[in-house]
């Protein structure tokens, strides 16, 4: 994976965030990870910060759907409605496995939907797959 791709992780559960990061690192991914615990600050960083990833370089977003301040689907909708952000790949990584919710995410333009399995081995495997995925995808360059 291109070294300069920034990973933005929007995840309110500290434990989940730690486990995700651990497994990403174990998969051999060394990219910078920005972690946000709520939707508001994540959107602030994504949309409004001058030094934000939008204008700095390619980005990949890991998004949890159950956030304390807003629904993950709302964040997804905002990202996919933004003319500059909409090409940014979004990986929804959440506990929800409701069929309707999954369909809604894909309808909104989510690129990958991963359900967090309770079983840790499966969880670790899913993150490793994500690492594999990250190593082969080509992310759109901003302004390209």
């Amino acid at each position: 994976m291109t070294q300069n791709v920034t990973i933005i992780m929007i995840e309110d559960d500290e434990g989940h965030a730690t486990l995700i990061e651990k497994n990403i690192r174990r998969a051999g991914i060394a990219n910078q990870i920005h972690h946000f615990r709520d939707g508001t600050s994540a959107l602030e960083f994504l949309v409004n910060t001058p030094g934000g990833p939008l204008r700095e370089g390619p980005t990949l977003i890991l998004l949890d759907l159950n956030l304390p301040d807003m629904s993950g689907t709302d964040i997804l909708a905002i990202i996919k409605a933004d003319p500059e952000l909409r090409r940014t790949p979004v990986v929804v990584l959440t506990t929800t496995d409701d069929r309707l919710e999954i369909e809604r995410c894909y309808d909104l333009g989510c690129n990958v939907y991963i359900t967090k399995p309770v079983n840790y081995e499966n969880f670790a495997a899913a993150i490793r797959q994500l690492g594999l995925f990250l190593s082969v995808i080509t992310v759109a360059q901003p302004g390209a």
């Binding site: 559960d13 434990g15 989940h16 486990l19 159950n66 506990t95 309770v118 840790y120 081995e121």
Partner: peptide, 21 residues
């Protein structure tokens, strides 16, 4: 029931994950 079971799942992921760790 739906919300409760989903919200209960989230901490379980942690318990299982950190147990494995």
């Amino acid at each position: 029931a739906y919300i409760v079971s989903h919200d209960l799942r989230s901490p379980l992921v942690n318990v299982m994950g950190f147990t494995a760790e």
